[in-house]
Amino acid sequence: MFEARMSDTTVMKRLMDAITTLIDDGSFDISSKGISLQAMDSSHVALVAMCLRNEAFDPFRCDRNLSLGIQCKQMGKILKCSANNDVMTLKAEDDGDVLNMVFESPNGDRMSEFAMKLTDIDIEQSCRDLSNFGESVTICVTKDGLKFSVKGDSSNASMKFSQNGAGDDGNDVSIDLNDPCTLTFAVKYLNHFTKAAPLSERVTLSLSNDTPLVVEYKIGDGLGHIRYYLAPKMEE
């Protein structure tokens, strides 16, 4: 039996938005520690890894580890039926094929129940062609700062953030640098990752030459995180 109650559905809504941008369905692993997910997009270029600790729920009960195959769009539709300050309860039987979701208004005068069918997810989905890539962004980090530059068909653009300065929107930028690095990525994916921005005031980008980019957003005050991994564009 899995049962978890969350006092505010907002985090779950934002989290599902941030996941659905990359994947259609995923296996959500439920354990006594909380809920986690690791899934690649269909082209195997990016990966999303999410963890929502049991502290994000009260109570949180998980008698046996479960893997729930969830169609993210479907869950998103159900979540849209709740108000932001609704209390949400998730329930699943150990050998069931349904996830029950209950929303209750804080004063208890309204309750709605949904039963979502779980799916068997084929983890080894075949790759689709990587035919339609958007433009590339090159990220260059030096001791002076962080620079994003894009070369388009008809125009070029670049943005630079200085180590101790402030970005365009006034937010602080801090850089922890071992070695300078320059990497190129598909902008399309970075745009997908920004879907997680409402979950956190701060985003952390981790780069190292010739390795995937890691983009991390913390959830709440130690409640968990969502991380995206993105394969770089490289010389053949």
Binding site: Q38, A39, M40, H44, V45, A46, L47, I123, C127, L130, F133, S136, T184, A186, T211, P212, Y229, L230, A231, P232, K233, M234, E235, E236
Partner: peptide, 14 residues
């Protein structure tokens, strides 16, 4: 020119 690499080149998901 640079080509998009696959994440599978770096690691495999569980």
């Amino acid at each position: 020119p640079k080509q998009q690499s696959s994440l599978l080149k770096f690691f495999k998901p569980k």
